[in-house]
Design a binder for these strands. Structure first.
Lengths: 276, 276
DNA sequence: CGGGGTGTTGAAGCGTCTCAAAGCTTGTGG
DNA sequence: CCACAAGCTTTGAGACGCTTCAACACCCCG
């Protein structure tokens, strides 16, 4: 029980009021040129010293490009309490956000209130790429646990990218990866049974956690059954039933949001075995 | 019947052998530095004179940036016959492709042969953004009618983008749009009934055609029921039945792949009316 | 004019959803 | 510290929508 994967700190004692960070529906207003923001969040971000470097925007950049990032770009951090939005659809797009600690979901919504979770993001992931197109966010980004994000003003990022080709390359690859991920989700949603979708999701989540140094077999889900169901195109009851069935088959142990994958190969067979 | 929308030329008489364009699994090898390709496809592309400028990569760029595009970048065109691949998943990524005439589908496939159509692309659309991430294409791009594409070597595009900020901006917006589109597809796949999915698809397709100067009410589908079903996460029979139901309700007229939308507001109500 | 690919339609089966109730966990206030 | 409330999860039973399997119609192309 003590080796269970935890995503970031369990509890972050006190947060600045997250409401005023969102005033006027504008997000990402905190840039290096904004003294108020600098005061509110005096922490100066140093990508070169960050443990998440490899997963995050910097990637494998060499020193020069890294310093350009650290010095001119990522200047502030923002805290977002569990359940609070980092931004909402319709907010003006200003900045990308790199998750430093915590866990988020992104949700698209129709006028009629129909919801679809489009992804779950963890430390090192980038949020906000969808906003570039129309300079407006198109999704809600909600913290599923107390989180901290690095604010990356996009105009500045583009500027630096022009001078540092490796950074430009990296940005393009990350945007492209987002597209590939979405295609993968579409594959799940469009042509798989509930068991296959859940199995694929769990294996992918475990792999992402493992890439960040956590256990790939014992995981703590940060989303509810309903949120997971939305992402997978299933109702929460179906998600719950499918978990129970997996447990009955000896593939994993479920205790609410604590999942232990006991037979990863079995899960892989759930995906591979069931032919079209 | 004579005002029916046609996408591009009805028939392009003769094509160069498309097989050798795909030799070795490498696509997009035809760059300005490749004399053979230049010989095979001597047409020099002039974005500034192209009717699709606004929809395509150049967007609303001013003259200087446009000339940079035309002169240094898009140097060759490729023809792809109906049913033939522009590229396949696993091919080395070299270039983006801008559709000049024709219509494509992109398809992801699992090892077990499960397929998912991830999108349909028409004149002005960009194909290949998914390949940037790992320098390999991740989808098959198949021509659904005889088509011609402009080849845009990506290394060169990045280079020019560094010198022409408006072009850089444009590229980022297009990549972001792709992400937004995919999220929209996920919404359809994850939380809609067959009728809603098809109605949303038809309205969106009509809007895209209209933006390109075609009729938004009378359209000629380029994909089979099966391909459309794959994109919508439905079986071909379900697509066919849903078309029939729409016709019975007086929303549209169906005759194989010829669709006349007679009641667009009715179609919108199909999406909006059915609450969660 | 015939054949193959494509589209339509019907009937039965199956997977997921809906509705409902009960169990469990967590947080809060008495 | 316990009790209770609120929210989340589990489980069951029946309904519903889509798929499957099958047969037939249609259109295009040679």
């Amino acid at each position: 029980m003590s080796s269970v994967t935890e995503l970031g700190p369990r509890r972050i004692p006190s947060y600045v009021d997250s409401a005023n960070q969102h005033a006027g529906g504008v997000v990402g207003i905190a840039t290096v040129r904004d003294p108020h923001a600098a005061l509110a969040h005096p922490s100066v971000v140093m990508c070169s010293a960050c443990r998440l470097r490899a997963e995050c925007l910097p990637g494998e950049l060499e020193r020069g490009a890294l310093d350009a990032l650290a010095g001119r770009l990522v200047s502030t951090r923002r805290k977002v309490a569990q359940g609070e939005p980092l931004f909402r659809a319709g907010d003006v797009f200003d900045s990308l956000f790199a998750i430093w600690t915590g866990f988020f979901k992104t949700v698209v919504m129709t006028r009629q209130g129909r919801e679809q979770v489009t992804g779950f993001q963890m430390a090192g992931d980038l949020i906000g790429l969808d906003g570039i197109h129309a300079e407006r966010m198109t999704v809600d980004a909600i913290a599923l646990e107390d989180s901290q994000v690095c604010v990356i003003p996009f105009a500045g990022l583009q500027e630096v990218a022009r001078e540092a080709p490796p950074l430009q390359e990296r940005l393009h690859r990350l945007m492209s990866r987002e597209i590939v991920n979405d295609h993968n989700s579409m594959l799940h949603l469009g042509s798989m049974y509930a068991e296959e979708r859940l199995a694929a999701f769990l294996l992918e989540l475990a792999a992402r956690l493992e890439a960040r140094g956590y256990s790939g077999s014992s995981l703590q889900l940060r989303m509810s059954r309903g949120e997971l169901g939305s992402y997978l195109g299933l109702k929460l009851e179906t998600v719950s039933r499918t978990f129970s069935r997996f447990q009955a088959q000896g593939l994993l142990d479920v205790s609410h949001r604590r999942i232990s994958i006991t037979d990863p190969d079995g899960l892989r067979q759930v995906i591979d075995g069931a032919e079209m």
